[in-house]
Nucleic acid binder design. Sequence first.
DNA 1: GTCCTAAACGCAAATTCTTAGCTTTAGCTC
DNA 2: GAGCTAAAGCTAAGAATTTGCGTTTAGGAC
Lengths: 185, 185
Amino acid sequence: MSPIQGTRTGGRSARVQQAVHDAVRDLQSERSRSELSVPLVAQHAGVTPSTVYRRWGTLQELLADVARERMRPDDPPDDTGALDTDLKAWARLYLEEISSSPGREYVRDLVASEGEENSEQCNRYCQVKIRAILDRAARRGEPHPDADTVTDRVTAPIVFRVFFSQGDPEPEWAETLVDKLLADL
Amino acid sequence: MSPIQGTRTGGRSARVQQAVHDAVRDLQSERSRSELSVPLVAQHAGVTPSTVYRRWGTLQELLADVARERMRPDDPPDDTGALDTDLKAWARLYLEEISSSPGREYVRDLVASEGEENSEQCNRYCQVKIRAILDRAARRGEPHPDADTVTDRVTAPIVFRVFFSQGDPEPEWAETLVDKLLADL
DNA sequence: GTCCTAAACGCAAATTCTTAGCTTTAGCTC
DNA sequence: GAGCTAAAGCTAAGAATTTGCGTTTAGGAC
């Protein structure tokens, strides 16, 4: 039985999805956003444009779909032995990731997409990592904030500053956010 | 001598800009984002599409330009007599504004635009209001955080939650952000 | 006020993107 | 493996975008 009645998830459909995603990633690495188009992606993927239009609707939605995939957490965050250093290492990495040129594009694509599922999913991925760090702290018996507080005091300021303030924040700034958070516990 | 060599700011150019902005606002109030197009806006504004393309480049950039205009601060925030209540009133209003359906669209349009000038300008508008509140607190002799701290602890979480968390936050939640900020002073 | 220059607009042709209808292919169930 | 149908391919019509060129007009100089 398939997960959703009458929706095909394997075989050709899966291959097309894979080919289109790969094409987007390839093209993103060598062309600017304004040079991308549905027909171009379709050609590189070896499918017809109408297939892409039917499945994703617009280039924007396709880009958001690809961005969400790229944000999927791969490895659990490094265990440095203490909450303070775990959170700082993660915050630093996160800031570097989303302030990088491709990182900005991904977040931009997520926010620009019509529905909010993609952005929400992305935040959930983020919280998975945060919770892994907090769980370790709990097991060590360290006092720790909850995941929502970390989101409000570390993740949110990082994302906000990258998108709404001029100039790139220094990696150290992410660590000061963690310092302040832990000082207020 | 004109401010920027060879850039026209008055007369016909100004009228066209006004007409196009007005057309966008009119259309936004009665149509969904996906129904907007450059030719449609141009027609309502009584100009040719090529004029819009040449001045703004894409629909996205035009929408970001309009959104920035709408975010411009109008009145100074209400003076309720104390920092705590001033900040809470502002935070509540801000949350309501950007979590509203048109508000979300404006922020979306800002972030989606190519350059970052529009988003940055928007944050500056926001900080103008925050600073007005903090200045009043300073004059009253109240202890107060700096504007960047308010941005990190109130503005950023509000924006982040509206765009990356599912479900609409309650207005009261914005006030708790202020409570926590002031408690940690 | 008049003239000059170039920025900005209008128009229209050429190109590219998007959509819709129909046909074909290939997963899935039995 | 036969039948069913979602999803892909194909093609043509329609819409949006880009571009070149002529015209208008704002802004500065005299």
